[in-house]
């Protein structure tokens, strides 16, 4: 495989394998924060990323929630966009061809019923440009009255089993952090054949407009993202990576290379940059380059040597 020239300053091997998806560096972009990728072409050379996770896809196009859809919070933001996406067919026909051929593209799958999830997975399997699937388990399950798939182990198991049957592609499951014990959810996914885990999705949250005593979002509740959630994400990534053998992709408020390295140290094999893409369209590429520089400064031959090197005290 031919690869673009590495910067001369470094001989660090930045490659990682995320559940069968080979990445030239461990930095992907989180679903919902990077559009379908081509929106960032004016700003960055997309091939400098490890890969992208595209905006979650449903069987049919969806319009999303009425506004206000986002709000700023201390060192973070709330969103309730509401499934807005072009649908799986338009993604394959119109969005994928805009991306460079050497960029690994993970398609995120989002639905309200298990058989619909499986159908989206089927339609993405065999599409040459799709390197893997990421099951977004934070969607409300209609039949259970809106509880997230990722909040009930039996429901999550059924979802992963169904997706596993529907596709031979590398299968990532993106876990909801809105659970009592993330380790249990991680084990369920591993047992049902997931190839990797992505975590965390946004934390369910609420903010209030005191002038009206109404929620700031039209949807009421939203998902909290940004640097405010990073320590929670690090804790859950560490716990999940301790609980399973499959690789973990760390997500949650990564703004800099130092933040990303913390996730690797806590057991993540790769990371996803999310909210930072909004503030700075160059953020993910800057994180990728910064990780390499950090590894070089530490005298490491491989970025992968950082993974899971946390020295957690054992005397307590």
């Amino acid at each position: 495989m031919s690869r673009p020239e590495e910067p001369a300053r470094s001989r660090v091997d930045t490659r990682v394998d995320l559940g069968g998806i080979r990445l030239r560096n461990p930095v992907l972009t989180a679903s919902g924060t990077f559009g379908y990728g081509s929106e960032f072409s004016p700003f960055v050379d997309l091939t400098r990323l490890g890969g992208i996770v595209a905006k979650s896809l449903t069987l049919e196009p969806r319009q999303g929630n009425p506004p206000p859809r986002i709000a700023e919070t201390p060192a973070g933001m709330l969103n309730a966009i509401g499934l807005e996406n072009v649908g799986v067919a338009a993604f394959v026909a119109e969005k994928l061809p805009l991306l460079p051929a050497e960029l690994p593209v993970v398609a995120s799958v989002f639905e309200t019923e298990i058989d619909r999830y499986a159908e989206v997975c089927k339609r993405l399997t065999g599409v040459p440009r799709v390197a893997g699937l990421e099951i977004n388990a934070s969607c409300p399950h209609v039949k259970s009255g809106g509880i997230e798939f990722g909040q009930r182990p039996a429901l999550l198991a059924e979802l992963v089993r169904s997706a596993r049957r529907a596709s031979s592609l590398p299968l990532l499951v993106k876990l909801s952090p809105n659970v009592t014990d993330i380790r249990e959810m991680a084990r369920v996914c591993e047992a049902e054949g997931a190839d990797a885990l992505s975590l965390i999705n946004t934390l369910q949250a609420l903010d209030v407009d005191l002038a009206t005593r109404r929620p700031v979002l039209r949807n009421g509740l939203g998902g909290l993202s940004g640097p405010a959630i990073r320590p929670v994400a690090l804790r859950m990534v560490w716990q999940a990576s301790q609980a399973v053998r499959i690789p973990v992709c760390g997500i949650g408020g990564i703004m800099s290379a130092a933040d990303a390295v913390k996730f690797l140290v806590c057991g993540a094999t790769a990371v996803q940059v999310g909210t930072a893409n909004y503030l700075n369209p160059l953020a993910a590429v800057e994180v990728a380059e910064g990780i390499e520089a950090y590894a070089a400064a530490q005298g490491l031959a491989r970025v992968a040597d950082l993974i899971g090197t946390l020295e957690m005290p054992t005397d307590r």
């Binding site: 004016p42 999303g64 009425p66 506004p67 369209p281």
Partner: peptide
């Protein structure tokens, strides 16, 4: 004007309803 996080069409935060339906 509207709240927006990115300004270039990816956060989808700045939707306003269209007269023709949708946003």
């Amino acid at each position: 004007e509207n709240h927006m996080a990115c300004g270039f069409g990816v956060c989808l935060g700045c939707a306003v309803p269209s007269a023709a339906g949708g946003f």
